[in-house]
Design a protein around this nucleic acid. Structure first.
Length: 204
DNA sequence: CCACGGATTGGCT
DNA sequence: GCCAATCCGTGGA
């Protein structure tokens, strides 16, 4: 396990900025989930931005509902939703209060708690090389590996249960920009960002 | 109340 | 590459 001690938790002020800025800067940062006796950690390698003010694919485009209300808070909260009758996806709320913006965490690279993640995903510890790369290479997979569910909806990311550690900002030539995946509206927006050549990005 | 479809995944052709 | 699984948020009657 890599030494995560030198890195500090991202502060509130990181999250309350513009959603596209936060999305790009989240690449390379480390998602942490702490439980009793265990710590799960994964480097964020792929994200997508959603902005309900101009983006028809955002859950907040239709206005405030019970499901999306956390996205209208100021930045620094966790938005978890359930989809396709099977999967959870997790987002980082960004911007100022009432903006309705968030960043979807689409893929991560496991750093710590890999046995726990393996059990959560495949109910076993010994994995083939293919299974290792399949641990967290998609938004539903990240949530399954980290055991992130509806109970984590609305968590404050400046708290001690789920948070993100700072890491040096990536050079722009390490970041690939593309259209978002799996949506039917506002498909042309180039709001997907991922780390060039990383093995854990969701292929497609 | 009912119908529709989704910010996905994994299995099969 | 295609498609079923499977729940629930959302909107219309």
């Amino acid at each position: 396990m890599k030494n995560l001690q030198p890195f500090k938790k991202l502060p509130k002020s990181f999250y309350t900025r513009d959603v596209l800025t936060v999305a790009k800067e989240l690449l390379g940062k480390v998602l942490i989930k702490k439980e009793e006796g265990s710590l799960l950690a994964g480097k964020i390698v792929e994200v997508e931005a959603y902005d309900g003010s101009i983006d028809e694919a955002a859950h907040t485009f239709i206005g405030r509902t019970k499901r999306n209300e956390i996205m209208f808070n100021d930045g620094g909260y966790f938005y978890v939703y359930f989809t396709y009758g099977a999967h959870f996806c997790c987002n980082v709320v960004t911007g100022k209060k009432d903006h309705g913006t968030a960043v979807l965490i689409r893929a991560a690279e496991p750093l710590a708690g890999i046995e726990r993640m393996s059990l959560n995903r495949f109910n076993k510890i010994l994995l083939s090389e293919k299974e290792k790369l399949n641990l967290t290479s998609g938004p539903g997979k990240v949530c399954e590996a980290f055991d992130i569910t509806r109970e984590h909806y609305g968590i404050d990311l400046t708290g001690d249960k789920i948070f993100i550690l700072d890491r040096p900002k990536l050079k722009s030539n390490q970041i690939v920009i593309s259209k978002r995946i799996g949506i039917k509206k506002s498909v042309e927006l180039p709001w997907r960002f991922y780390i060039k050549d990383n093995l854990y990005i969701s292929k497609r």
